[in-house]
Amino acid sequence: MKVLFIDDTVDNLSLFKIYMKNFDEADCTFESDPRKGIEHILTDTFDIIFLDIEMPEIDGFQVLDSVDSIKAPIFALTAHLSGEIINRIKEHTKIQGVVHKPVLKKNLIEIIKNEAS
């Protein structure tokens, strides 16, 4: 499984790296620059994408607006539990699901395994 993580906070990416360290089924790319993230989505083929929503310069929604059709399922990463952002995520056609922060390893692995099958 080719997995892409886009999150502007480097510490969050470090956490995901630790989570994915011994998970051989996944070949992961970790990107902190959302602009480069957009390039990755357009040029490479991923099986699953985890996208942070709250990013200061270009947020998750803007990343999604910059790519037309994405084959891979996209999961939004957010600290919000309710409210406007969650509503937007739920109604967004390009977003498959939500992973709430703090992200737990077991939740991540479960989602990847589900998509693999």
Partner: peptide
Amino acid sequence: THDLRTPLNTIIGLTNMIIEE
């Protein structure tokens, strides 16, 4: 608050991982 949440992500995430695994 955004900056306060980030280190908490790591603490909670890794503590949970250790407990589980």
